[in-house]
Amino acid sequence: MKAPSLQNTLLVTGLFTASFAQAAELEITVENLTRGIAFTPILIAAHDMESHLFVTGEMASTELQAMAEGGDISGLEMVATSVAADMATNPAGGLLMPAMSTTTMLSTEQMNTQLSLVAMLLPTNDGFVGLDSWTIPETPGTYSVYLNAYDAGTEANDEVRGSGTPGEAGMPVPPPLENVIGMNGTGVAASITNDKVHIHPGNIGDAEIDGGSSDIQNTVHRWLNPVAKVTVVVSE
């Protein structure tokens, strides 16, 4: 009796190993590739196949809106916790400035095979850098992913000083950005033209610190995709 049951156990273990991803130890480095855009606190989550922090072409969740308009990742953290995601929150300890990198460790559970990342882009109205459900490789090694800038589609890109509260117009301006953001712009876009999560069309800015249409500087605060590089080291 003992031998067959042991064999069964081995067989079951073998199948389990073959058909499910392993728990993983990841070293994750996020590099801000822009020349003038800051990333607000970054949320990195490893989660299952069904979950997403955001999906292009779909409406933003209220939690995503709070992150994209004000840099508040607490709502998305709660959503990720509810699906038993493994998370690294705010690895840079605040803003990740242009050309800067931050590195964090992340231990993932077996079921959490997908890696996602979000952080608001400043200065923007509702722009964010995002990674949606990148499959964590099972083979140990070093992998790189380049990320695009997205628009949450929840706020008109007026590019003027305002609020980081969801549903309120304008851009939040935290102290580190106070001196690089202009004032008294009349506003660029007055309305939302795509209310789904989409590729950000980019900042316009203008050449006037005081006045003009935008409070953003056109020679400083633009970007082209990609805006971030994520390097993932999968340990043995």
Binding site: T56, G57, N148, A149, N157, V188, A189, S191, T193, I199, H200, P201, G202, I204, S213, N218, W223, L224, N225
Partner: peptide
């Protein structure tokens, strides 16, 4: 909006890659 005087386009018409999935 970016200073091309005769353009009929505004800031909302700008795009970055990709525009299609």
């Amino acid at each position: 909006d970016d200073g091309l005087p005769d353009s009929v386009l505004d800031s909302s018409h700008r795009f970055a890659n990709p525009v299609m999935k």
